[in-house]
Design a protein around this nucleic acid. Structure first.
Lengths: 334, 334
DNA sequence: GTGAAAGCGCTAACAC
DNA sequence: GTGTTAGCGCTTTCAC
């Protein structure tokens, strides 16, 4: 590995001069030296050593990306196409900004903090942590942190990029109501954050139409049990006009369970999802859902983080818009 | 950030002694000092600085994970649940071995090499690069490299962990033949590496049964065009007894296209896939497929890389076994 | 315009 | 058992 010292020797100048040329501080360097040094730099394919840079400048150019899961399991990443698209969006943007991505599946805040400290990470992006975990991490690390898809209730909060979940639920709610649904059941595996907001949106839509009943049921969080649970509830579920699942994946499973039991979608019951993931098109009927732009979300996350690191104002959206996508899983009831 | 020097001062010893205690070289350190130092270390939550460590020891504890794509696009990561599961498996294992994961979506070998050199990465794991790209990268970087799911034809090769793809194709081929299929069509979007081997396996099975016809058709590589292409070929496709798709995702799309056109699976035509991805269970009929264990593959990749780094022999499998999973998408023809 | 020298936090060889 | 010291590759201050 060729070092600045070697380049300097070959050019017959001091390391300082070479360093200046590398960094474009060429005001006080003679033209001839600039050219000579640049040529040698090229020839030897000089690559700076990050370790030395880190030590000398006390910055790492590293962004830590932390993915959490429910009770230490890798929930968010498995089977969920969004996580991988998000990861790819993040890396793309991080690299574009001349940073590097250190990736970790975080289990405890302790562990995450150690990682960040060990590597003097300049910023942290988290996905799949709870609001509390983010706040704790933020406190310990004292570095810019942007969470994805969190909602903060109290006064303590972390910076966050998310969606207009409430509006998404509201839009879908209105669409269902316009199509004559009188009884709408919202299904998710929790009642916090994103899913809660989507539910609130639906609820608002229902309230604005006195005659519509909306309710929220919580499914088991473990995937293995969900389909069985749906089967068990079948009789009750069939009493509703429409099922609004908090994500496409669940909606697709829901449709399969219904169809397996001989219930027709959307003739007997309408089913909708949220996200517009690849799953939405890969079922029959194709799923009516709410679209989010994951690539854009990732881009915004990195933009936000950069503005935090550089202490510049952020001119972007913290809650990205969503859009209703009408396909075939809803049938008008009027 | 507290440094070794600070700890040493507080304990009234030299930095060397502290360093020794940290690294467990306590043969020549007095018991009282060990205790005292460990206590102070605890109190101050001492965290070593990676930059200094890297510089002093000339090693980074970093593993670079490179994900490539077709013509610079993020092919392998999007919509493909395997990439994200693999990523999670890799990170889990890397961290377990006390290394850290630097993640990059590589577009050119130049870029990847620079990344590896800048960070003095101790090993490289690649996914979705071509055999040629891996060989080139290997040559430039001169560090341990393990590719995933590649096949190397010539004498130049990189270390690799993959599947028994040929056997998988062969097993499935035999299963189809046992079920009376006389004409089997294999469908993939390329004819190299993994897909080629799976096809060879099927071909062998067909050859061992003189009366069975097997053929291989190549679909367009762009996902947007695949379903349309399948529709266009429908008439020809229906002449076959069974369709063997190189992956579950394609199989699921195939089933949807067939069903949309009024063709029954498996009554009119049998369809099978490969991978046993989440998609396999999320279609009707549920897919008969060949299962691979992605978590195990990821584990093996890291194990192989570690053995390369430590220059120890590797006692593991380079081609992991696969297993036939019979579900409902094949109907006996006899 | 250019270069010498100190220092970033740590390790390891060696002296005591 | 313990401490001194040089050095890893680079930046930065300051002197020339």
């Amino acid at each position: 590995m060729v070092r600045i010292k070697d380049i300097a020797k070959e050019a017959g100048v001091s390391p300082t001069t070479v360093s200046n040329v590398i960094h474009g501080n060429t005001k006080k360097v003679s033209k001839s030296n600039i050219d000579k040094i640049q040529k040698i730099l090229e020839e030897h394919q000089y690559i700076p050593s990050m370790s030395a840079l880190m030590l000398a400048q006390n910055r790492s150019r590293l962004i830590g990306v932390l993915i959490g899961g429910v009770d230490g399991k890798r929930r968010s990443i498995e089977g969920d196409p969004f996580t991988s698209i998000m990861l790819s969006a993040l890396e793309l943007e991080i690299y574009r900004k001349n940073y590097y991505m250190l990736f970790h599946m975080s289990s405890t805040s302790e562990e995450s903090w150690k990682l960040a400290a060990t590597w003097k990470v300049e910023g942290l992006i988290t996905l799949g942590l709870t609001a509390e975990q983010n706040i704790e991490l933020q406190k310990r690390c004292q570095i810019p942190l942007v969470s994805i898809d969190n909602y903060y209730e109290g006064r303590e909060r972390a910076e966050n990029i998310g969606l207009q979940d409430f509006e998404g639920g509201f839009k879908m709610g209105n669409y269902l109501i316009e199509n004559g649904m009188k009884k709408i059941l919202f299904l998710s595996d929790n009642d916090i954050g994103v899913d809660h907001e989507r539910w609130l949106g639906l609820q608002r839509a229902a309230k604005e139409n006195g005659s519509v009943l909306a309710k929220h049921w919580i499914m088991p969080i473990k995937q293995e049990f969900q389909m069985q649970w749906l089967k068990d509830q079948l009789e009750e579920i069939c009493k509703w006009d429409a099922l609004f699942f908090a994500s496409d994946r669940y909606a697709q499973e829901g449709i399969l369970v219904l169809q397996d039991m001989g219930i027709r979608v959307p003739e007997d019951i309408s089913v909708v999802g949220f996200d517009d993931s690849p799953y939405a098109k890969m079922c029959r009927p194709q799923l009516t859902t709410v679209r989010q732009d994951v690539m854009k979300k990732g881009k915004m996350v990195v933009k936000k983080l950069m503005s935090l690191i550089k202490e510049e104002p952020f001119d972007g959206e913290e809650r990205l818009p969503v859009e209703l996508v009408v396909r075939d899983s809803v049938q008008n009831r009027e």
